[in-house]
Simulated assay, not measured.
Amino acid sequence: MQPPKKTYTLQEATKKLEHYCAYQERSHQEVRQKLMDMYMIPEAIDVITIHLFEHNFLNEERFAKAYVSGKFNIKKWGKSRLAYQLKQKGVSKCNINLAIDGISDKQYIDVFNSLANKKVDLIKESDKWKKKKKFVDYFIRLGWESYLVYDKANELIK
């Protein structure tokens, strides 16, 4: 026999979601999913979402900028992976572009070059074609633009 589902009043759920959003930036989709997991009815979900938005607990632009900053600086993701992941989280195209434009071109290229120089030394492969393939696959998976990746592979692996 399963234990009964925990139910929440509108006030309890609102407080819980305020803490959820205050802890770290959340997307609208994450908030809606959290409320659905709490078995809230659609009308309550709308009321709470509007409350969070009006009281600045929820802000899609701020979420997108924080997400891009974190994933770029920590995981070294490229722009295409960042855009794809934000799209999966239901962020609008406008906010995706705004967040990605926050990365300076110089910083973007510097991070890529530094990462590429480290990665090429880590690939233990004697066949230059296999080494290039491993190099290219790694950077494409991280979402770096193919023209950057292929140019760098040809420059570093001869």
Results as ranks from 00 to 15, higher is better:
M1F: 07
T9Y: 03
T9S: 15
L10I: 15
L10G: 00
Q11W: 00
Q11Y: 01
E12C: 04
A13F: 07
K15P: 00
H19S: 11
Y20P: 04
Y20F: 15
A22L: 10
H28R: 13
H28I: 05
Q29M: 10
Q29P: 00
E30I: 01
R32G: 04
R32E: 13
R32T: 07
K34G: 00
E43V: 12
I45V: 15
V47R: 11
V47M: 07
I48M: 03
L52K: 04
F53G: 02
H55K: 12
H55Q: 08
N59Q: 09
E60Q: 14
R62I: 10
F63R: 02
V68Y: 01
V68K: 03
S69C: 04
K71M: 09
I74Q: 13
K75F: 14
K76E: 13
K79M: 05
K79W: 01
K79N: 12
S80F: 12
A83Y: 04
Y84G: 00
Q85D: 14
K87S: 13
Q88H: 08
Q88T: 03
K89Q: 11
K89R: 11
G90R: 07
S92C: 10
S92F: 03
N95A: 10
N95V: 01
L98V: 15
A99V: 05
D101C: 02
D105C: 03
I109D: 11
D110M: 13
F112P: 04
N113F: 05
A116T: 06
A116Q: 07
K118D: 15
K119H: 05
V120N: 02
D121C: 07
D121W: 03
L122F: 02
L122H: 03
K124Q: 09
E125C: 06
E125V: 03
E125W: 01
D127H: 06
K128E: 11
W129V: 08
W129Q: 12
V136C: 08
V136P: 05
I140Y: 12
Y147N: 12
Y147C: 09
L148R: 08
D151P: 00
